[in-house]
């Protein structure tokens, strides 16, 4: 157990010590962005990596949570912590409704429906200007807990993000090894047989969906507090695609993959923006290159090269695309 936890602890500790090494807020904020992105990618990993449900609308979860907390704490005038709790609850409630629609299908139908759902919410955020501020978004979102923790300081905010990330890693690490986590991978690979054995495949998938939504919402809360601003762009197709890229680059279905992928994508995005302005095109080319050259992601590739690394992982890395079946 400790051998497994150690690398994560080292990485998180290294991230936490960045403010002690560098006084520049740029690097501290960069690490915060990586942590927030990693929390979201870990959430999507539950769906893509372990449930075999390829969602192209993941940004709807952080988007809903961020918009709710922003609206409640600015227009609504509720204090940030309470607003955050309401935002989490609200996101989970809406996600449960979305699950009723999205989980009617699997495979490509699921891809299309999740994308359409996210686009509908994006459209609402974009067009319903009287409530959402339209393209201008909502600004001036207050960070919580000035009395408890000085979260306006970048390094303190980073430590909050890392604490949430550590919680996500521990929770998901336990979940993937739990009976439910194993049943989830069973439902991914052999839905019909799982059904025959007596598992309720729909309910297992629903649990995965809600878990993904919860971590997505947590990432959304941190995102809203980090930027102190929300706009429809965080729910655009490119946003969902970026999370998917983190997962595919790092390796879906592994615990470390989303973390590595998030770091890569955030660094790439920040570094690339210094030299070139065409991030969307770079994102497109990255997708094409990754799919053609490295379809399994970095972590599974690394795993194949070095068998000893396998001991660090809770779940064996599955092939990139889980078998799809027309299940009942």
């Amino acid at each position: 157990m400790s051998a497994r936890v150690l690398p994560y602890a080292v990485v998180l500790a290294a991230m936490a010590m960045v403010p002690l090494v560098s006084t520049s807020p740029f690097y501290v904020n960069l690490v915060s962005q990586i942590a927030i992105a990693a929390i979201g990618a870990l959430g999507l990993n539950v769906l893509v990596g372990h449930a075999g449900l390829n969602s192209l609308g993941f940004a709807v979860f952080p988007g809903l949570a961020a918009y709710l907390v922003a609206w409640l704490s600015t227009v609504g005038g509720i204090d940030p912590v309470t607003a955050g709790i309401f935002a989490l609850a609200g996101t989970l409630a809406v996600s449960a409704l979305f699950a009723l629609v999205a989980l009617r299908t699997t495979g490509l139908g699921f891809v299309m429906i999740t994308m359409a759902l996210c686009q509908i919410v994006w459209g609402a955020a974009y067009r319903w200007t009287s409530v959402t501020g339209g393209d201008n978004g909502l600004s001036g979102v207050p960070r919580p807990g000035a009395s408890l923790l000085p979260l306006e300081r970048p390094e303190v905010f980073l430590w909050l993000c890392l604490a949430v990330l550590a919680l996500a890693l521990v929770q998901l690490g336990h979940f993937f090894e739990s009976p439910l986590g194993v049943a989830l991978r069973g439902a991914r690979d052999q839905p019909r047989r799982m059904n025959a054995v007596g598992y309720d495949v729909w309910r297992i998938r629903f649990a995965a969906w809600m878990l993904a939504a919860a971590w997505g919402a947590a990432a959304g809360l941190l995102y809203a507090w980090y930027h102190q601003f929300v706009s429809p762009h965080m729910m655009a197709v490119t946003a969902s695609a970026e999370v998917l890229l983190m997962l595919v680059a790092g390796g879906a279905g592994t615990l470390a993959g989303p973390l590595i992928g998030a770091a890569l994508v955030v660094l790439l995005k920040n570094l690339a923006s210094i030299w070139i302005e065409r991030w969307v095109m770079l994102l497109g080319f990255t997708f094409v290159v990754i799919v053609v050259l490295m379809p399994d992601g970095i972590v599974p590739g690394f795993t194949r090269l070095r068998g000893w690394l396998r001991r660090l992982k809770p779940a064996p890395a599955p092939t990139l695309v889980p078998r799809e079946r027309a299940d009942g």
Binding site: N54, A241, M281, L283, V288, V291, P295, L320, V321
Partner: peptide
């Protein structure tokens, strides 16, 4: 491109999405 990925959902989704981004940004 697509022909290499026959039967593999996620890579196909990423590839077509990547091409969509390239085309959209090129138009811009």
């Amino acid at each position: 491109l697509l022909r290499r990925l026959a039967g593999r959902t996620l890579p196909q989704v990423l590839l077509t999405l990547g091409i969509a981004f390239i085309i959209a940004d090129a138009c811009l």
